[in-house]
Nucleic acid binder design. Structure first.
Lengths: 120, 120
DNA sequence: CGGAATCCAACACGATACTG
DNA sequence: CAGTATCGTGTTGGATTCCG
């Protein structure tokens, strides 16, 4: 049993999962792995997100040390987000998770939208 | 955008995360990676779990093809759980997630909520 | 032994409106 | 431009009880 930030974990795997388990975190990290982005830019890249959710996810990623928030003291406001060194180290792992998911989907080729015999 | 099982995903990473994002799934997979276990055994290994939750998580893992449920037609009932080939392929990934989490915890040694008497 | 069924609390997520 | 604030909802996890 591991204690971290007033939370208890049975395994540090759960800590890593906690870092990336948020509705938009994977996407954010993915986009930021390519380039630094402004808030507005991220919004355009993820049109499905609400401002509130995007802000929330960015704040959590920042608090967890995976991204860096850079505020420029100009008008109109300018804020840039980029991966931290920690965040960059996470990217290869995400790539592997992505690869597994992709293989996984391929291993269930007939499962897409065919509820033929769900009555098990 | 990927469609899979009537769900939409922005990235297959999210599919993999969905497979292992359940309160007890990591632990279950971890235990089953060492040996085949009966329901009762898993319960003893995870005393914090309720029967309902353990059953639910096992059912999901089975439905997702990560574990195999083997029912013996005997009295009293005997049910064994083991990793599928797909589940086995997931283990190295979990190990890496675990490693990252462990490194992550070490990189925040001054975190306010970590008790100082932790000599890890 | 290995469940299923029911009820309930917490929280993640979302829609919408407002702001320095 | 880059956010807050408020309110509402769906999903997840948990406690408890009953069953073949």
């Amino acid at each position: 049993m591991i204690k971290f930030r007033n939370q208890e974990y049975a395994c540090t795997t759960e800590i890593t999962l906690g870092l990336i388990s948020g509705k938009w975190k994977i996407l954010i990290l993915s986009y930021l792995s390519h380039k630094t982005c402004r808030f507005n830019e991220l919004q355009k890249l993820m049109p499905e997100t609400t401002q509130k959710m995007l802000t929330l996810q960015l704040r959590e990623l920042e608090k967890d040390g995976l991204i860096i928030r850079k505020v420029y003291a100009v008008a109109p406001p300018k804020v840039e987000y980029m991966l931290s060194e920690l965040g960059q180290r996470l990217i290869p792992l995400l790539t592997q998770l992505c690869k597994f998911g992709s293989d996984y989907v391929d291993s269930f080729p007939l499962d897409d939208s065919v509820p033929s015999d769900q009555h098990v």
